[in-house]
Simulated scan of single mutants.
Amino acid sequence: MTTPTADSSPSRRRRRSRVEAPAGTVVAYLRVSTTEQAVSGLGLEAQRATITAYSARKGLTVVDEYVDEGISAKSLRGRPGAQAALAAVRSSRAAGLLVAKMDRLSRSVVDGAGLMEGAGREGWALHFADLDIDTSTPAGEMAANIIISGSQYERRLISQRTKDALAAKGARGERLGAVPSLPIEVTRRIVTERAAGRTFQAIADGLMADGVPTARGGVKWYPATIKAVIGSDNAGEIRDELGLEI
């Protein structure tokens, strides 16, 4: 019985059968984190400029570009652009993945470490243009891990500070979130109609029939909403002004 050699092992055969991507080729990944940035394009052109400059300096060729708009870097899940970029390097359409800034790709230690481990195992490179880091080198991998850890710490610290601030406001009895604003003329209409004897439902139906939006811009009025408006400070001021009894 012949003993398999190291070269004939399954893992060795898999590495040999993998098609090598053209040297010096990369796919670019760009991300903007908010809907406003996605609509306006803020940030995308700056990322492209950084990627172009880095590619020229390093002699790299960008063969494709993938973009996620209005999506957070908290996790790789739910980011079709990132998944497509990873599929491109894993299928050897390019030799590396290039991002303008590390936090465009990941701010998670778990995701970042997993990506770098996968890149080394699968034979493709991760390039972070802003830091001039190529994670195919030991020094680059170590630097990237340190920076990702710091980025995750910053994100979690901001989140905790926000939670603490909201908890403090709640403890003081302050309202959390923006206060809806209803035009004074709509409040006046509700107050006068109620003073005239109309039911909450009838007032709500009339507002919907006339296409009057709610304080949050909605189209549906409910009796409970009318009741809340009647009990508001603005409604009280209008009642006093008009000398109405409700």
Rank of each mutant, 00 (worst) to 15 (best):
A165M: 02
A171D: 11
L86Q: 10
G211L: 05
A204L: 10
V186P: 02
V212H: 04
K220Q: 12
P180R: 09
T61H: 09
E65A: 06
E65Q: 12
S91C: 03
E45S: 04
V19P: 01
S33D: 10
R172F: 13
G114P: 06
T61L: 05
V191M: 03
Q201D: 15
V27K: 12
A165K: 03
I226T: 11
E237C: 05
A209T: 04
I147H: 13
I230A: 14
G43P: 06
I158Y: 02
D233N: 09
I148W: 02
G243F: 05
R155C: 14
A144L: 02
I190C: 06
A23Q: 12
A94T: 03
L60R: 04
T162K: 03
V39Q: 08
K220P: 02
D64Q: 01
S91K: 04
I226V: 15
A144C: 08
W124C: 10
R48G: 14
E174K: 13
S9W: 10
G217W: 03
I148K: 07
D130A: 05
R16S: 08
P180Y: 04
T5V: 12
T2Y: 05
G197K: 04
L244S: 00
I158R: 04
G123M: 04
K163T: 12
G59H: 05
R48H: 14
R15L: 08
E141V: 12
T61W: 04
P4V: 15
R198Q: 12
L44H: 12
A228P: 07
N234K: 13
R172Q: 15
Y222D: 09
A165H: 00
V63F: 11
S181V: 13
A56K: 02
S181F: 05
M116P: 08
L166D: 15
P213Q: 10
S72M: 03
H127N: 04
Y222C: 09
L244H: 00
T25S: 09
D134N: 13
M208T: 14
L60K: 00
A224F: 04
R107F: 10
T137E: 07
V62E: 15
G120H: 11
G206A: 15
G173S: 13
D210W: 00
E69C: 08
S181Q: 11
Y153K: 00
D210C: 00
S136K: 00
R239A: 15
F200D: 12
R194I: 12
R175D: 07
R12D: 09
N234H: 12
